[in-house]
C-alpha cells in the first residue's frame, strides 16, 4: 500500500508539473481555477467535514483574501503581504463568527454564516471608496519575486500550484496531529468527545477559523487569476457551490476536496450546456447523491483503489453510534 501511495504521489506531482506545458490558455485557466477551488474546499472540509460545522460563508471569507491583494497591491505591498493580510482577516473573522456558533446548534450556524455572507456582500457593494462598489476592482497584479515574475498564465499556474501544495501539506500536518484526532472524535461522537476532555469550544473555533483562513488564501490567489473582481463573485451562491464541492467529494475525507474541486470545476465544461441547464443537472445530481451515495464520490474512489491494488474490500463502514439522545433521556 505504501508503495502505491508513493507512486501515486510521484505520478500526480509529475502530471501537475508537466501537463500545463501542453495546455492552451483556457484549459490552463481551468486548471488554475481547480487548484484555487481545491484550496477553498480543503478549508471547508476542515470546518464541515472534520469538525462538523456547516459554513455558508466561505465565499465571504474568500473575498477577504481577494480584496486584500486587490487593494494592497497598488499600494506597493508585495503580493505575499496581501495574502497574509487577507488570510489573517479571514482567520480573525472566522474566530468572531465561530463564537456565536458555539452558543447555538448546527442548524442555527447555517443561518448565521449565511447571513454573514450576505452582509459581506452588501458591504463590498456599498463601501465604494474601498472596494469600488459594484464595479469592483480591475487590473489586479500578479506576484513577482525580484526578476522572477509570475505574469503569464502558465507561470501563475505554477505559483498557485506552490500554494496549493503548501495548503495540502499543512492540512495533512494538522489532521495527523492530536487535533486531527480530536476533530474526528467530535464528528464521530460529540458527547463522548466532551467526556474525554475535548474542549468543543477550542477545537470548533480553531476548525472554523483555520477553514476560513484557507478560504482567505484561496481568495487571494483567485483575484489575480481573473485580474478582476466584483462583489458578484462572492455571493451566497458561491458559498453553496463550495458546500456542494465538499459534499460531492466526501465529507471528512482527505481525498474528498480533490475529487469535489475537479468535478465541480470541470463538470460544466464537459456538459457544455448553458448555465441554467448545468445548474439543473447539478442540483439533481446533488439530490441523487444525497439519496444514493451520501458518503460522496470518494466512495467510488475507494472502490477503484481497492480494485487497482487488488486488496480485499475494507470492512464496510460500521453502523453509526447510538444517538447521544438515547443516552441522555431520563431512564
Amino acid at each position: 500500500m505504501r508503495g502505491w501511495r508513493a507512486l501515486g504521489l510521484l505520478g500526480g506531482g509529475a502530471i501537475l508539473l508537466l501537463f500545463p506545458l501542453f495546455l492552451e490558455q483556457y484549459k490552463l485557466y481551468l486548471a488554475s481555477l481547480t487548484l484555487v477551488y481545491l484550496i477553498l474546499a480543503i478549508g471547508l472540509n476542515l470546518t464541515l467535514g472534520y469538525a462538523g460545522q456547516i459554513s455558508l460563508a466561505h465565499a465571504g471569507f474568500m473575498s477577504f483574501g481577494s480584496y486584500a491583494v486587490a487593494i494592497l497591491g497598488p499600494l506597493g505591498v508585495p503580493f505575499e503581504g496581501g495574502i497574509i493580510v487577507g488570510t489573517a482577516i479571514a482567520f480573525l473573522w472566522g474566530l468572531v463568527l465561530g463564537f456565536p456558533a458555539l452558543k447555538v446548534k448546527h442548524h442555527y450556524l447555517a443561518m448565521v454564516t449565511l447571513g454573514f455572507n450576505i452582509i459581506v456582500f452588501l458591504v463590498l457593494r456599498n463601501w465604494e471608496s474601498l472596494t469600488g462598489g459594484s464595479f469592483g476592482i480591475s487590473g489586479i497584479g500578479r506576484p513577482h519575486w525580484g526578476p522572477l515574475r509570475f505574469l503569464s498564465d502558465r507561470a501563475y499556474y505554477y505559483y498557485i500550484l506552490g500554494w496549493a501544495t503548501l495548503v495540502v501539506a499543512s492540512a495533512y500536518w494538522i489532521l495527523h496531529s492530536r487535533w486531527g484526532r480530536a476533530f474526528r472524535a467530535i464528528r464521530e461522537n460529540e458527547m463522548r468527545a466532551e467526556v474525554v476532555g475535548v474542549s468543543l469550544r477550542n477545537y470548533k473555533l480553531m476548525a472554523f477559523a483555520i477553514g476560513s483562513a484557507y478560504a482567505g488564501i484561496g481568495g487571494a490567489l483567485f483575484a489575480p487569476l481573473l485580474t478582476y473582481i466584483d462583489p458578484g463573485a462572492f455571493t451566497l451562491d458561491r458559498s453553496i457551490q463550495f458546500l456542494m464541492m465538499v459534499v460531492m467529494g466526501g465529507l471528512g475525507r482527505f481525498e474528498g476536496p480533490f475529487i469535489g474541486a475537479v468535478v465541480v470545476t470541470l463538470l460544466p465544461e464537459l456538459l457544455r450546456a448553458s448555465e441554467g441547464f448545468y445548474l439543473i443537472i447539478f442540483s439533481l445530481a446533488v439530490i441523487l447523491m444525497m439519496l444514493f451515495m451520501p458518503k460522496g464520490l470518494v466512495a467510488a474512489w475507494d472502490w477503484m483503489v481497492c480494485r487497482l491494488t487488488r486488496r480485499t474490500v475494507s470492512p464496510a463502514h460500521p453502523p453509526p453510534p447510538p444517538e447521544p439522545a438515547a443516552v441522555l433521556e431520563p431512564e
Binding site: R181, R184, A185, E188, N189, M191, R192, A193, E194, V195, V196, G197, V198, S199, L200, R201, H317, P318, P319, P320, P321, P322, P324, A326, V327
Partner: peptide
C-alpha cells in the same frame, strides 16, 4: 462546568449505552 472541564478535574465515566469512537 462543561463536561470537558469536569474530565480535566479527574472525573471519568463509562456509559450504560456504550459510547465509543466507532471508526477509530
Amino acid at each position: 462546568l462543561t463536561a470537558d472541564a469536569v474530565y480535566h478535574r479527574g472525573i471519568s465515566r463509562t456509559f450504560q449505552l456504550i459510547q465509543l469512537f466507532p471508526e477509530m
